[in-house]
Design a protein around this nucleic acid. Structure first.
Lengths: 334, 334
DNA sequence: AGAATTAACGAAACCGCCTTCGTAAGTTTG
DNA sequence: CAAACTTACGAAGGCGGTTTCGTTAATTCT
């Protein structure tokens, strides 16, 4: 590993001059600069990040907080999409992204301790156990934080506009003549599920319609959708005219369950999902759904975090940024 | 931020003693050790990773190489599953995981430069452009590397046993009486696609069966599956008895296309996929497929990388580790 | 009891880089 | 032309740890 001293020796100057040249300081003449840069290249010089960080107190690194405890980590399509967009954005600015861990070597650390240890510039919370004690510490530490889709109090959050999405779905269904609309909510420990449910009640309430036909799915997945549909039918013998599901996976489960029971979608009942996962374009019937803009969510989160890091925005202020969604009309509604 | 000097001052000893106590050296008496640890805790001491790394030359960090150029990054379910397992394993050992980037601050670096800069202990290659010039550099640098599913020459690789999987599929289909079996290959720039195709030909050849009914899908996705099926039918007017698709997404596309054409699965034709993605259990018909063990792949990759880091295994040797797969029989075959 | 170990600790150097500050030479100003 | 700035550079100290080595005090050995 070659260091600035090696360069200095070869050029015949002081290490401080090399450092300045490498950082393009104007305290070094152009001639010297060129000379130093040439030697640096010749020797294959790469700076040492630890030394630099130690000296500058500037880490250029961002931590990603994925709760390992919940099983809903990286594998979830929605979150990995967001992460991808986030990563791209901040790496373009020169930041490095690292997963926040609870260990270093063999030693156990809290999240905050780990962040201090790594001297992290900011953190993105993707999925997390809301009840995790360690989070409070983190929030109060003053380290810039942003979360996506989390519902954490006191943390700036970027999330799809669940109200807008729900409104579009319901108004569309009503415009098609639906009078009785049911909702398969997502698991209510999830913030988005709560918002969608709330919006469902609010919108239907505004139109003086029955908003009581609600079943909570245990999870956001296909199988929970199937189960939830059966519960819904137990609750109320007659089929609603439309079903608004809190996720595409749930919606697909609902459609399959309906089909198994001999009902036709959309002839007997319309079904709408939420997410716009790739697959929904291709299923039969293809699914009417609300498209979440993963790229934009990731990017907005990145922007806001960087703004905090650069002190362009107040860290204390827990804003919530709602990203517009889009209603995608396909074959599962009529 | 409290340092060992703060602790030393408060305890009334030298910083070197504090350092030793913190590292549980036996050169410090138990009494002192206890005293120092108490003060450290009281002051909320957390060591500084940069300083430690600088002094020890030991980084405890592992880089993940995701090519950003291909659009097949984190969002791909298969890879994110592997990454999850990998991450869990190495973090448990105390390693930190970071995405390998090509920039630091505003400066552009090659992969190798970046790894040197960060003084990374090892790297996991997940998806990568095989033709990327920068890879050669990396391979030759002596930094421990492992790849998953990559087909990179000279790099230890962990991959599903595509031969075993393909053999199981074909022998199962034959046992059910299928005589004419077609293959929808994955995109042949992918190593796994190549292996599955090769295995397809080898196995059918061994049984003296026609192995010429092959179409390459442009991509691993649903839509490519649909298109490929149409090409297959153009190639050969009569339907084969069974179709072996290189991925579940392709298989689902194939099934839908068949259905659109009025064919029934599995009555008119059996279809088999590869991956065992969550959804395949729930589609109708549910999909017969080959389950890839993402967790095991991730873990094996981690194990091998750690072994290299600990010099328990030769870095030079480019082994290929095949992880067993499992045939999951469902409704799409008869 | 005197010699030889060993235990416990501190001083100091070092890891690789950045930054402040002093200084000598060169340049501008009045 | 002397005074006042600038420019270009080097010496040295600091960032927060680790590690070597020397020293004193306490043990063990003969």
């Amino acid at each position: 590993m070659t260091t600035i001293y090696d360069i200095a020796r070869k050029v015949g100057c002081a290490s401080s001059t090399v450092s300045k040249a490498l950082n393009n300081s104007k305290e070094v003449s152009d001639k010297r600069k060129a000379e130093i840069l040439a030697v640096a290249k010749e020797l294959g010089y790469v700076p040492n990040s630890s030394a630099r960080r130690l000296a500058t107190k500037n880490s250029w690194s961002i931590g990603i907080l994925f709760s390992e405890d919940l099983n809903i980590g990286l594998e979830h399509h929605f979150f990995s999409g967001i992460l991808q967009a986030f990563k791209t954005y901040v790496e373009d600015l020169g930041y490095e992204v690292t997963f926040v861990s609870k260990k270093v070597g063999t030693q156990e650390l809290t999240y905050l301790e780990w962040c201090k240890y790594k001297d992290i510039d900011g953190i993105l919370i993707v999925t997390v156990d809301v009840n995790d004690e360690n989070l409070n510490e983190l929030r109060q530490s003053g380290i810039p934080i942003v979360s996506v889709d989390s519902g954490l109090i006191n943390v700036p959050t970027v999330i799809s506009d669940n109200f807008q999405g729900t409104r579009m779905v319901l108004e569309y269904l009503m415009s098609k003549g639906a009078k009785r609309i049911a909702h398969i909510a997502g698991p209510l420990r999830s913030f988005s599920a709560l918002e969608r449910l709330e919006a469902f009640k609010e919108v239907l309430g505004k139109y003086n319609m029955d908003s009581s036909q609600v079943v909570e799915a245990y999870n956001y997945d296909f199988n929970s959708g199937k189960k939830a549909l059966h519960e819904l039918l137990k609750l109320n013998k007659t089929l609603p005219e439309a079903i608004y599901a809190a996720s595409d996976d749930i919606a697909l489960g609902v459609i399959l369950a309906l089909r198994d029971l001999g009902y036709k979608v959309p002839d007997d009942v319309s079904v709408v999902g939420f997410d716009n996962i790739e697959l929904t374009r291709y299923t039969s019937p293809s699914l009417t759904t609300v498209a979440q803009d993963k790229v934009r969510i990731g990017r907005e989160a990145a922007k806001h975090l960087i703004a905090q890091i650069n002190k362009e925005v107040d860290t204390e202020q827990a804003t919530i940024k709602r990203v517009p969604v889009e209603l995608i009309i396909r074959e599962s509604t009529k």
